[in-house]
Simulated assay, not measured.
Amino acid sequence: MTGRPEPVVRVVLDPERAAGSLVADVRRGLGSAPRTLPPKWLYDDRGSELFDQITRLPEYYPTEAERRLLVEHAAAIARVSGATTVVELGSGTSDKTRTLLDAFTAAGSLRRFVPVDVSEATLRSAALMLAQRYPELAVEPLVGDFTLHLGHLPTGDRKLVAFLGGTIGNFYVEERAAFLGALADSLDPGDALLLGTDVVKDADRLVAAYHDSAGVTAEFILNSLTVLNRELGADFDLDAFVYVPFWDPAMERIDMRLRAETPQRVTLPGADLVVDIAAGEEIRVEISTKFRPENLRDELAAAGFSADPAHQWTDGDFALTLAHRLP
């Protein structure tokens, strides 16, 4: 050990703004057709626990597929990116990222790791572990929402921003373009982006990954209504909804919805909102877009990134793409 001080956690997330964001999202989403809820509100403590269970399910292949790709290609990613700072968006426990950090450490180039997440407790715990595992590395956690706080990313060093887990697939097309453009604006020419994406494959296999036999994914999606009942004083009857996932071939995405089995009037005092939901009506809670390598390169190029096909790695299930910020 070098005696490096305990990691200093930087908090840029404003709890009051987060509460206001929830209200705005709910008013906009439940007032639209079809009704929607942003997936980020799934991840309270219970939701995070359920998602961790999902990643361990036999039907859910993305987590382990991505882990295998990272193990196989981490050394090349470290070499090609040339980064001295690694930033991870939606870092959580930084579990898979350790494979990257090991490769960068072996290359002798890495000086700083900046994990970004909305959960301060999770970041603090992970940062302490990482500081012990990598005593020469400056670990600088940032508590923030990566859809809002890209302007707080570190500057100066050559950076690699890792955005793993297929999370980019949870964005709608226009949201994805806006996010990637904002990310490009926050980076310097030559900085790198490592993007983990699920790939288009057999529809039955895709649906099975989001409709597990144990019902964990259904509970995860239903948890969105539990969050609204708790945070906004809503009176959703959870027993009146059934989880409905399906493959949308036109958009090439899994669509995860809750379907009302009986009509109900839902009051959300915290959002000053009353919603009448008809029997059979659905609330879209989350999407998970699947990508084709050439289409992803086009999206990245439109946002200001260049992706060499030689730096796209896939096993047919999942893919890692290393792109660079254009001048």
Rank of each mutant, 00 (worst) to 15 (best):
T167K: 07
F146T: 01
P154S: 12
I168W: 03
N170V: 02
A138M: 12
E140W: 12
L142H: 07
G166R: 09
I168N: 00
G169I: 01
A162W: 14
N170R: 14
G166V: 01
F146I: 04
G151K: 11
V139R: 11
G169A: 05
L148K: 11
L164K: 10
A138L: 13
A138P: 05
N170C: 10
N170I: 06
F146D: 00
F146H: 12
T155D: 12
P154L: 07
T147S: 10
G156H: 11
A162L: 15
E140G: 08
F146K: 07
T147P: 04
F171N: 07
D145N: 13
V139Q: 01
G151I: 01
G165R: 11
V143Y: 00
L160N: 09
V139A: 02
L142Q: 08
Y172T: 10
A138H: 10
G165D: 02
P141Q: 05
D145K: 14
I168T: 06
Y172L: 15
H149F: 03
D145P: 08
H152P: 08
F146E: 00
V173C: 02
A162P: 11
Y172N: 09
F163W: 13
E140N: 09
Y172D: 09
L150D: 00
K159T: 07
E175T: 07
F171E: 03
H152I: 08
G144S: 08
A162N: 12
L150S: 04
F171H: 03
L160F: 14
L160V: 13
D157W: 10
P141S: 06
G151C: 12
L148Y: 09
G144V: 02
N170W: 06
G156K: 14
D157G: 14
T167M: 07
G151H: 15
G156V: 11
K159Y: 03
E140Y: 08
R158Y: 13
E175Q: 15
G169K: 04
L150M: 07
T167F: 07
A162M: 13
L148N: 06
N170H: 08
H149M: 04
P154H: 11
G166Q: 08
H152K: 13
P154R: 07
P154W: 05
T147R: 06
L160A: 11
V173W: 04
P141T: 06
T155W: 13
H149R: 11
Y172C: 02
L160G: 01
E140I: 05
F171A: 08
P154N: 12
F163A: 08
G156S: 09
L153K: 13
